[in-house]
C-alpha cells in the first residue's frame, strides 16, 4: 500500500469526481461536503463503473407511531452514488449497498497533506 498523489484539494470542488487508475485498480474519488471518499470503480453487481453515475440523496419512507406511512422523501443527510449500468446504489460515506450492507465496495483511505490529496492504494 502506498500513498498516491491524486490532486490538490484547492483544485477539487465539492460535487466533483475523479476516476483514476493505479495499476489494475480503478478508483473513484469523490469530494462531498468537503470530505473525500474513494471507492473501487467496479460495481459488485456486474462490474459497471460504479462511481461514474448519478449522485442522489437516499430515498426514505418514514412510519408514524401507528405504522402508517408518511410516503417517500429524500434524506436530508444521506447521499448515495449510483452505478449507471443497473442502478446499484451505494452509500457515499461507507460504500455499502443501500439494500444490502454486506455488499460493500472496496474503500480506499484518503490522506491529506497540506493541499495535496493522496489515495492509499
Amino acid at each position: 500500500m502506498a500513498e498516491q498523489f491524486v490532486c490538490k484539494s484547492s483544485e477539487f470542488k465539492n460535487g466533483e469526481r475523479q476516476i483514476i487508475r493505479i495499476g489494475e485498480e480503478e478508483i473513484g474519488v469523490f469530494k462531498h461536503e468537503d470530505e473525500y471518499f474513494a471507492y473501487s470503480n467496479f460495481c459488485l453487481h456486474q462490474g459497471g463503473p460504479a462511481c461514474e453515475g448519478l449522485t442522489i440523496a437516499r430515498v426514505e419512507e418514514h412510519l408514524r407511531a401507528d405504522k402508517t406511512s408518511m410516503g417517500l422523501s429524500f434524506s436530508e443527510k444521506d447521499m448515495n452514488f449510483v452505478c449507471p449500468w443497473h442502478g446499484y446504489e451505494y452509500d457515499m460515506r461507507t460504500g455499502a449497498h443501500v439494500a444490502d450492507p454486506k455488499v460493500r465496495l472496496r474503500k480506499y483511505d484518503i490522506v491529506k497533506k497540506g493541499d495535496d490529496i493522496y489515495v492509499v492504494a
Partner: peptide, 20 residues
C-alpha cells in the same frame, strides 16, 4: 437529482460506458 440538484455526468458514449 434530489430537490432539483444538478449532477454532472459524462455525455453518453456506449463504448466508454461499457469499457468494463
Amino acid at each position: 437529482a434530489d430537490r432539483g440538484r444538478r449532477v454532472t455526468v459524462e455525455e453518453l458514449n456506449t463504448s466508454k460506458l461499457l469499457a468494463h
